[in-house]
Write a protein that binds this DNA or RNA. Sequence first.
DNA 1: GTTAGCACTCATATTAATTGAGTGCTAACG
DNA 2: CGTTAGCACTCAATTAATATGAGTGCTAAC
Lengths: 344, 344
Amino acid sequence: MLLNDRKYRILEAIINDYIQTAEPIGSRTIAKKYGLGISSATIRNEMSDLEDMGFILQPHTSAGRVPSDKGYRLYVDSMMRQRPLTEEETLFLQRMMINNFNQIEYMMQETAKAVALLTNYPAFVSEPYIKKTKIRHVQFVPLDEKSVLLVLVTDAKAVKNQTVSLPNAPDFETLTKLSRVLNQNLEGQTVHDITRETVDALFSQFGKHAYMVMPVLGVIADLIQAEDDVRIITSGVKNILAFPEFSDISKAKAIFQALEEREMLITILGQEQSERIQIIIGEENNLEPLRGCSIIKANYSFDNQSTGCIGVIGPTRMDYAQAVSVLEGILINITAVIEALSGG
Amino acid sequence: MLLNDRKYRILEAIINDYIQTAEPIGSRTIAKKYGLGISSATIRNEMSDLEDMGFILQPHTSAGRVPSDKGYRLYVDSMMRQRPLTEEETLFLQRMMINNFNQIEYMMQETAKAVALLTNYPAFVSEPYIKKTKIRHVQFVPLDEKSVLLVLVTDAKAVKNQTVSLPNAPDFETLTKLSRVLNQNLEGQTVHDITRETVDALFSQFGKHAYMVMPVLGVIADLIQAEDDVRIITSGVKNILAFPEFSDISKAKAIFQALEEREMLITILGQEQSERIQIIIGEENNLEPLRGCSIIKANYSFDNQSTGCIGVIGPTRMDYAQAVSVLEGILINITAVIEALSGG
DNA sequence: GTTAGCACTCATATTAATTGAGTGCTAACG
DNA sequence: CGTTAGCACTCAATTAATATGAGTGCTAAC
């Protein structure tokens, strides 16, 4: 059952208006505000049809109409108009990314902040996820008599470091040698690649420093383990307070609660990653605490191997066009920056 | 004008009750709930006196009484009873600190989280602050053909790293040599200590890799600069939503706003650091957006050189005893952990 | 000095009345 | 036949009127 042009335009007016005002909208208002050239009575008839079709609904008999999830779905699928980012916005994003390109954690943090700022919705970003992180380089850095810093660079160029406590730490020269030994044996491997033979080799090549082998391998395993966990960062959660939908403190609290729970976020992010940008409207997500919220997420990938996603969450009445535009802009710019920096 | 025992006990009852219920309390309730052995009429007379003295006040003529800032001041200065942390709480804190001792940033983050969790108030932690960070160790770590990772360890054992982009990066051997050169020239210095002579020396000792000197020094300067900035981390800001004082969304929003502004936080933290634990009640702080809030902060120091503070913020009616207990516990445990790890 | 008793105050809760945005239906119109 | 004017009807939200009750201060008696 297709919508005729008039119904289509009326629905469009209702949704646009509701996204802006959060108030149910009536026939008379539509007639006055959106010059469609028909009377309010006609609009009433059409609205009655739209309601039967399930695109809009009435909070109560004497109120105006409000878009339903199905209505929003139609909207995002076929009537929403995206706008490209302004030059300013693009510049802002690019500058941020270039500044933080080498520190993946800051980059995520800053990206989340940027998205929250540009959309005015709470934003979340999941770190690039690689199934099996490989060791690209390990190196000791002297710290003091009883500890050595171990720096680990992964194949995704993430840099991690952790102190290894030892009864007494070797000097700079020795550490340099040991660093070389470590690299010769471990470079290019995942934690699971490390065999008994490798460990044996390390023990013998470390010579009188063999006592270091196990602590060091432990730290490496920990660091990679931590790297293999998906990290999720949120920003601007307080933005939710600006929407009348959450003027009831208990609802606001529920959102805060939800966005603080890792499990919840992972569930959100986990859903299929096929599309470039995915929109989950209202009841389409089946997480109890997030009923009445919509989620927009953009899946990005990195070197064709690590993937992650960036998204925002808001009331079902959120400004989809705006949010999608920003996320789209981020995707484009991430790609651009990565290419410029790694390709150039 | 000293309070007699009876007035003292009545005031105590009022404050304790108000901290718990957030409702003005009347004479009859005090008589019934807190068996002081006197009638409500007597209590009324005493309360009238207490009001004249400025310890309590009446929101309106026919309401009960509420403690004034002056009342709270008396309370925290002389009638509040601290309780030691439970064994569980202590264990929780110590475990957290030991786990994160070597990664100062995580440690701060986790400390803030812990304080927020134990007190149920928003918490903030400022990073240990050293006026002039000294270079303890610098080292190159190979990354790829066009970049080298620079790892910097400061005298506070903070580890920082940043990629240096170069037209073509030297190999491992060379980097090791250059690392040594760098250390010989820079160890123990602050950024301001670096003289023209030092730079000249680097240029000549770097030989054909002299082109690296300026980029490297730039990165070092940046890292130390960033380190010299005070960082402040907050956690559990949403806890504020649990208090009826902030059930008005706009007030909650103001707090969120305030705690997101670095400047504001620095002002809070900046105030005199003489006392071990400092309590700022209501109007005693003169930051407009935080009117009606109290702040409790604990100043810690680290190796007698770096200092910072940990605090919570809440309604003036906050549970001072509880919050002070937790902060006191943290101070004790920080010291204990530091001594155990560095001394042992 | 303490307390019972009473008149008084005033925020809050309750109820009632009013308003007005919005609907659906019907009948007339081009 | 599709469109529209008109009208009766609905119901959340606003306003006004009223009642309630927790609390006070004061006075007079114990």
